[in-house]
Computed example of a mutant assay.
Amino acid sequence: MDRCGARITLTRMTTRRALLLGAAALPLAACGRFGSQSGDFDAPREERVACRTPEALTSFATLGGAPLRYEITGTEQSFNADPRFVDQLEAWAADWVAVSGLGPLTAVSTYGAHVDKCGSWHAAGRAFDFGVLTHADGTQVSCRYDTWGEDAPRLALYWRLAASLAKHFNYTLTYRYNEQHHNHIHIDNGVSGYDTFGFNEGSRTHVLLVQGVLRWVFGRDVPADGGFGQSTRDAARAVQQEYGITQRLASTEGWGAFLDAAAGAT
């Protein structure tokens, strides 16, 4: 038995994907279930392992100069993560503030970063779950799809944020990924690490994000099926042309330019 109580063998790991329960939460709540925020599917999809070794962790209590709050209680507190991952988060925060036009961050609510959760990038301190961002002008960008549902203005802000995150973190999991992500956006760098990357049309995660951005930020009529079919491809190309993006989405430059256009759209 592993520490989380799930019996996992190498044979099973290579023949099927285990359902991993429990989003990141307070460090003392390792391996537990936390109601609606349980269920991150955040290990590399083809390379799940039973447990991940924590990397050297550092404590951080702010992001982009804003205090971190535990989304469940609203309490300000610190969280632990790999220091290089914290640097990535800070680079994202600076980029988001610069591109979004919403002003400085004043609060960031989260379900957590490092947690002793077997099979998860949270265990390595290389994952983070976003709840709500608050900006200086009072604007809130909420990832709580579970509380507001099909609200167009909120969806536009949500997908602008998701686009910004996807520029920095290869795995950006939204409410479209599965029901377990209806109350937060999960990010990790489990596949890309600390390297740059472009769009992967074979990645369901990437395509779902592009389809959400195309529909709710750019107003394009595309499906939400996770497949890079002709209608999605054509809509993406139209947006690229509209914004003067000449690089391919598969390139780091083209992907970044597309996502910046989405994050900065008003």
Rank of each mutant, 00 (worst) to 15 (best):
S59H: 06
E71D: 10
I72H: 10
E55L: 14
L63S: 04
E47R: 15
A43W: 00
T62F: 07
G74A: 09
P67I: 06
R52D: 05
F60L: 07
T53D: 08
R45Y: 09
R52K: 14
G64S: 11
A50S: 15
R48G: 10
D40H: 10
A61Y: 01
I72N: 08
L63Y: 02
F41Q: 08
V49W: 01
R69Q: 13
F60I: 00
C51T: 12
A43E: 03
S59F: 00
G65A: 12
D42H: 04
E71H: 13
S59T: 14
Q77A: 13
A61R: 10
G74W: 06
D42E: 05
S59N: 08
E76P: 01
L68R: 01
E76H: 10
A66D: 05
G74E: 06
L57M: 12
Q77G: 03
E47G: 02
R45S: 07
F60T: 00
R45F: 07
R52G: 02
P54N: 05
V49C: 05
A66V: 09
D42Q: 04
R69A: 15
L63M: 13
A50C: 15
G64Q: 09
A43P: 00
P54V: 04
A66P: 08
R69W: 00
T53G: 01
T73D: 13
T75E: 15
E46I: 01
P54M: 03
D40N: 12
E47M: 08
Q77W: 04
R48N: 11
G64M: 10
P44D: 14
S59G: 05
D40Y: 05
D40I: 11
G64H: 09
Q77Y: 03
T53N: 03
G74D: 07
I72Q: 13
L63A: 07
A56L: 10
Y70H: 13
Y70S: 00
V49A: 09
C51N: 02
T62S: 14
A61S: 14
A56H: 08
T73V: 11
A56Q: 13
S59M: 07
T73F: 12
E55K: 14
P54K: 04
P54F: 01
E55Y: 05
L57K: 07
D40T: 14
Y70N: 08
F41C: 03
T73K: 11
D42L: 02
P44A: 15
F60Y: 12
P67K: 06
L63V: 07
A43R: 00
E71K: 10
A56R: 15
T58K: 06
Y70L: 14
D42R: 01
R69H: 11
